[in-house]
């Protein structure tokens, strides 16, 4: 069997998969040929590979999202079946009028932006330090990455103890410095930052690894050239090295943002329930509370769609960027 790899030719005599398909199709109109003509020379022949997963993913992922959107347009609560005959945006206007929802949306946004930026900065700093040819490089890398491998359940309990008012490590350190104790979890103005700090601790190691890979990909000549030209270390990193880490920054920030949106696990484990401490409610916890504590399925779906749109707002530009670079 010969394999013809000549693609991009619509004339029909070049089929990538082994090529005798045109034999039976020349005699008249054929839907197979028409589809192949429209979508590419081996559209139909290759469908056995992509069609089943395409249908399954389409149904269970995108179908489910659309179904969720439909439910959010109904007034579905309690048990039974939703009534799809009367669709409106009532749940969304209810959300805008609900101060709990607005607070949760703002908190989600603060967490998203604050956590991502600080974690990126911290990860970059760690990566640069590790990249300075220090001793025990692998040991440090492992130590920094370790928190990321822990489950949210573990880290949340760990930080609940760290933040404890009376005997938490943080307050013990603060009081030994002569400052007053801080109510990290109970003060609604502080708790979100405390949660952000804990998440940052957990994910800085991940950002470090991504940046480290980026740094390693930069040729040594760039460092040497900068040094020969008399740049200081700070200037070298700022003007020469960091601008080359754009790709690493973008991929790390997308992953971090998605983790920020998924902070539900952390908050749930922190208090052992669906209601985070006052001041730390996010859309994910609000959604679960509405769905399972109140059985407000339609309202919870509306919250879910809002969260979905926020996620899409983050991932969409990233996908577009990758598409433009030819990576998709």
């Amino acid at each position: 069997m010969t394999r013809n790899t000549d693609t991009g030719d619509d004339s029909g005599d070049a089929v990538t998969d082994g090529g005798v398909a045109e034999e039976g199709q020349r005699s008249g109109f054929s839907p197979v040929a028409a589809l192949n003509e429209r979508f590419g020379s081996d559209f139909v022949e290759s469908s056995q590979f992509w069609l089943p997963p395409f249908l399954l993913v389409g149904l269970f992922v995108y179908g489910a999202i659309i179904w969720n959107l439909l439910i959010s347009l109904t007034d579905f609560t309690g048990f039974g079946t939703p009534d799809y005959s009367d669709l409106d945006f009532q749940m969304y206007s209810r959300a805008l009028a609900d101060s709990g929802f607005v607070d949760a949306a703002i908190n989600t946004f603060i967490l998203l932006v604050g956590f991502t930026l600080v974690t990126l900065a911290l990860g970059l700093g760690l990566a640069i330090l590790i990249d300075r040819n220090i001793r025990f490089e692998n040991t440090f890398r492992t130590i920094y990455l370790l928190p990321m491998s822990l489950s949210f359940v573990v880290t949340a309990q760990f930080w609940a103890w760290m933040f404890n008012f009376n005997n938490g490590v943080i307050n013990i350190v603060i009081t030994s410095l002569g400052l007053g104790r801080v109510d990290w979890i109970g003060n609604p103005d502080i708790v979100l930052w405390a949660v952000m700090f804990a998440l940052m601790w957990q994910f800085a190691g991940y950002a470090m690894v991504v940046f480290l890979a980026g740094l390693r990909a930069i040729p040594n000549e760039h460092y040497e050239a900068a040094k020969v030209d008399g740049a200081s270390t700070v200037r070298m990193y700022w003007r020469v090295i960091i601008p080359q880490l754009k790709g690493s920054t973008i991929s790390a920030s997308v992953v971090l943002m998605v983790f920020a949106l998924k902070a539900f696990d952390f908050l749930y484990s922190l208090v052992g329930g669906y209601r985070p401490p006052n001041g730390a409610d996010i859309l994910a916890t609000k959604m679960v509370r509405e769905a399972y504590a109140n059985l407000n399925w339609a309202y919870a779906s509306a919250v879910a769609i809002t969260l979905f749109v926020m996620t899409l707002g983050i991932v969409g530009p990233y996908l577009y960027y990758q598409y433009n670079r030819g990576n998709l």
Binding site: N164, N166, G168, D183, G186
Partner: peptide, 9 residues
């Protein structure tokens, strides 16, 4: 009440 009320169950 105890000062750490909000962080304990």
């Amino acid at each position: 009440i105890n000062e750490d009320a909000s962080s304990i169950g």
